[in-house]
Amino acid sequence: MKFSIQEITNRKGEIAEGILRSLFDWFDIESAIVEYCHHINELSLFAAVAQTNAVIGFLSLKEHNEFTGEIYVMGVAPEYHHQGIGKALIESSVEYCRNRGLEFLQVKTLGSSYHNSFFDRTRKFYMKVGFRPLEEFTSIWLGNPCLIMVMAL
C-alpha cells in the first residue's frame, strides 16, 4: 500500500472522527470521541494519505512544555492495520518533535492491569516503535488504568 504522511491544518476533528468511529474496539466511549475531536483542532496533526487522497490514519501531537510532547490520539483505519502506517506516523511525529527541540515523547494507553486483547496489541505496537512503560495510574481516567509510556528523543 502506497501512502504519504502529510501535516494537516484544517478539518482535523472531522478527519479524526471518521477513523476513531471505525475503531470501536478501542474507542467506544462517545464522550471521549467528542472530546478528542474537539481538542484535536488546536493540535498538530499528521495524516496518512492513500494514493486515492483518502485519509487512512492520523496522529495528533500535544506539546506540554519545551521538553515534552505527547501523542494525544492516533488511529489507523482497521482495514489498513499491519501495513506500516502507524509506524510511519510515529516516525514523522518523532522527527517533528526533534526539529522543535523536544527531548521526550509520551503516550497514554489503557494499562495492562485491565485485560483487553486490543490494548495488548496497542502496547506491543508502542514498545516495538520505541516507547517504554513509565507508570500506570488509576486516577487519570475514571474507571480505567492509564499507562504512560515514554520515548527519549
Score class of each variant (00 low, 15 high):
Gly57Ile: 00
Cys37Thr: 08
Glu42Val: 11
Leu59Glu: 01
Tyr36His: 10
Val34Cys: 08
Cys37Tyr: 06
Ala48Phe: 06
His38Phe: 12
Phe46Val: 04
Glu42Cys: 10
Val49Tyr: 03
Ile56Ser: 01
Glu35His: 11
Phe46Gln: 00
Glu42Gly: 14
Glu30Asp: 15
Ile29Asn: 15
Glu63Cys: 04
Leu61Gly: 00
Gly57Arg: 00
Glu42Asn: 15
Trp26Glu: 09
Ala32Trp: 10
Ser31Asn: 12
Phe27Tyr: 15
Asp25Cys: 12
Leu61Asp: 00
Asp25Leu: 13
His38Gln: 10
Tyr36Ile: 12
Ile33Gly: 07
His39Thr: 06
Phe58Pro: 04
Ala54Arg: 10
Leu61Glu: 01
Ile56Ala: 01
Tyr36Val: 04
Trp26Asp: 08
Phe27Thr: 03
Ile56Cys: 03
Ser60Met: 05
Ser60Gln: 04
Asn41Cys: 11
Asn53Cys: 03
Asp25Ile: 11
Ala32Met: 09
Glu35Gln: 10
Cys37Gly: 05
Ala32Asp: 14
Ala48Val: 07
Ala32Thr: 12
Val49Asn: 01
Asn53Ala: 08
Leu43Lys: 12
Phe24Met: 10
Tyr36Ser: 01
Asp28Ser: 14
Thr52Glu: 08
His39Gln: 13
Gly57Met: 00
His39Phe: 11
Leu61Ala: 04
Asp28His: 14
Phe27His: 13
Ala50Gln: 05
Leu59Val: 08
Ala32Cys: 06
Ser44Ala: 10
Asn53Glu: 11
Ala47Gln: 02
Cys37Trp: 04
Glu35Asn: 10
Ile33Met: 10
Thr52Met: 03
Ser60Tyr: 06
Val34Ala: 09
Ala54Pro: 02
Ala47Phe: 06
Phe27Ser: 06
Ala47Glu: 02
Thr52Tyr: 04
Ile40Phe: 08
Glu35Tyr: 12
Cys37Phe: 08
Ala48Gly: 10
Phe46Asn: 00
Glu42Ala: 15
Gly57Ser: 01
Gly57His: 00
Asn53Tyr: 07
Ile33Phe: 10
Leu61Val: 11
Ser60Ala: 14
Ala47Asn: 04
Ala47Tyr: 02
Ala48Leu: 07
Lys62Tyr: 09
Val34His: 09
Ser44Glu: 12
Ala32Gly: 06
Asn53His: 09
Phe46Arg: 01
Asn53Ser: 11
Leu61Pro: 04
Ile33Glu: 05
Glu42Met: 13
Leu45His: 01
Ser44Thr: 14
Glu42Thr: 14
Thr52Phe: 02
Asp28Glu: 14
Ser60Asn: 05
Thr52Cys: 03
Ala32Ile: 12
Phe27Met: 08
Ala47Cys: 14
Phe46Pro: 06
Tyr36Gln: 04
His38Val: 09
Glu30Arg: 13
Leu43Ser: 06
Leu61Ser: 01
Glu42Gln: 15
Phe27Glu: 09
Phe58Val: 02
Leu43Gln: 13
His39Asp: 13
Ile29Thr: 13
Ser60Gly: 12
Val55Gln: 02
Phe58Cys: 03
Asn53Pro: 05
Ala32Asn: 09
Thr52Val: 04
Phe24Gln: 12
Leu59Thr: 01
Leu43Met: 14
Val49Ile: 14
His38Gly: 07
